[in-house]
Lab assay of single mutants.
Amino acid sequence: DHWEIRVGDITIHLKDVDEEIIRWVEEALRNGDDLEEIKRWVEEVLR
């Protein structure tokens, strides 16, 4: 699977990601969370 999350001008590409993570990231972006923080979290989860 390949996911693209778009929020404003930001697009995040994710592969082999659980839908729950996608929802979490979308929510975090909508809440204005720091992008670097989100990326770190996702990388942590995917490890």
Rank of each mutant, 00 (worst) to 15 (best):
L35E: 08
D33V: 15
I12S: 02
E4T: 02
D33Y: 11
R40A: 12
L14I: 08
E36D: 12
G8N: 08
E4A: 07
G32S: 09
V17K: 06
E19H: 14
E44P: 00
V7A: 04
W24I: 08
I12A: 01
D18R: 10
I10Y: 13
W24D: 02
R6N: 09
E26D: 06
D18Q: 09
N31T: 07
R47G: 15
R23L: 07
I5P: 00
V45P: 00
E4V: 12
T11S: 09
D16W: 06
T11K: 05
L14A: 04
L46E: 01
V7W: 12
W3P: 01
V25D: 00
E43F: 04
D34F: 12
A28G: 06
V17E: 02
L35S: 06
H2F: 14
E4N: 05
E44H: 04
E27I: 11
G8M: 06
H2E: 09
K15E: 06
R47K: 15
G32I: 11
R23E: 03
W41L: 09
R40N: 09
L35M: 11
R40M: 08
V25L: 09
I10L: 12
R6P: 03
E26G: 06
E27A: 14
G8D: 07
R23V: 04
E43S: 04
E37C: 07
E26T: 15
E27H: 12
G32E: 05
D16H: 10
R23S: 06
E20D: 09
N31A: 11
E36V: 04
N31P: 08
T11A: 11
K15W: 06
D16S: 07
N31Y: 05
I5S: 00
V42A: 02
R40C: 01
I21E: 01
D34P: 08
R47L: 15
G8R: 01
W3V: 08
E44I: 03
L35Y: 09
D9I: 13
E36K: 05
V45H: 14
L46M: 07
E20S: 08
D9W: 08
E19T: 11
D16V: 10
D9Y: 06
V17C: 05
E37L: 12
V7H: 10
V7F: 13
D9N: 09
D33S: 10
I10V: 08
K39V: 13
E43D: 11
D1E: 12
G8H: 08
K15Y: 07
L14G: 05
E37A: 14
V7R: 02
W41N: 02
R30E: 08
R30C: 02
G32Q: 07
R40E: 05
E36L: 06
R6V: 13
I21Q: 02
K39P: 01
L46G: 01
R47I: 15
K15R: 12
V25E: 00
K15T: 12
R30Y: 06
W3R: 04
L14N: 01
D18S: 13
T11Y: 12
D1T: 14
D33T: 14
E37W: 13
R30G: 05
V42R: 00
I12W: 11
A28H: 10
R23W: 06
E4M: 07
D34M: 15
I22C: 02
V17Q: 05
W41M: 10
E4L: 10
R30L: 12
I38K: 00
A28K: 14
R6H: 13
A28E: 01
E27T: 11
D9V: 13
H13W: 12
G8T: 04
H13Y: 13
V45D: 01
E20C: 05
L35W: 13
H2I: 14
V7K: 05
R40Q: 09
W24A: 10
T11L: 12
V45K: 04
L29T: 01
I10R: 07
D18F: 15
E19N: 13
E4R: 01
L35H: 06
D18C: 03
K15F: 10
V25C: 01
H13S: 10
L29A: 01
R23D: 02
I22M: 09
E36T: 07
D1A: 12
I22G: 04
H13V: 14
D16N: 12
D34L: 15
D9Q: 09
I22W: 11
W3N: 05
L46T: 02
E26I: 14
E44V: 03
R47H: 15
D1H: 14
A28S: 07
E19V: 10
E27M: 11
T11D: 04
L29V: 08
L14D: 01
E44F: 02
K39L: 15
E43G: 01
H13M: 13
V45C: 08
W41P: 00
E4G: 02
E4S: 03
R23A: 09
W24M: 14
W41T: 03
D1I: 13
E43W: 08
D16M: 04
K15M: 11
N31E: 06
D16Y: 03
I12M: 08
D1S: 13
I21R: 02
E37S: 14
H2P: 11
A28V: 10
E43A: 07
H13T: 14
I5A: 00
D18A: 14
H13P: 07
H13C: 07
T11V: 07
D18V: 14
R40S: 11
T11I: 12
K39W: 11
H2C: 10
D9L: 11
W3Y: 12
L29R: 01
E37Q: 11
I5D: 03
K39Q: 11
D1Y: 11
L46C: 05
E4I: 13
K15Q: 09
R47T: 15
E44D: 10
H13R: 10
R6F: 07
D1C: 15
I21C: 02
N31M: 04
V17Y: 13
I5T: 01
L29I: 13
L35Q: 07
R6A: 04
E26M: 15
L29P: 00
L35V: 11
R47A: 15
H2N: 12
I12F: 14
L29F: 07
R6I: 14
H13Q: 10
I21S: 02
E26P: 00
D16P: 12
L14E: 01
D18K: 09
D9T: 04
T11C: 01
E27L: 12
I10H: 10
G32M: 11
V25F: 06
I12H: 03
V25W: 02
R47S: 15
R47V: 15
E44G: 01
E27F: 08
V25Y: 02
L29E: 01
W24R: 13
I12N: 02
L35N: 04
R47W: 08
V25T: 01
D33N: 14
R6D: 08
L46R: 01
L35A: 07
I21P: 00
R40L: 08
V42T: 01
D1F: 13
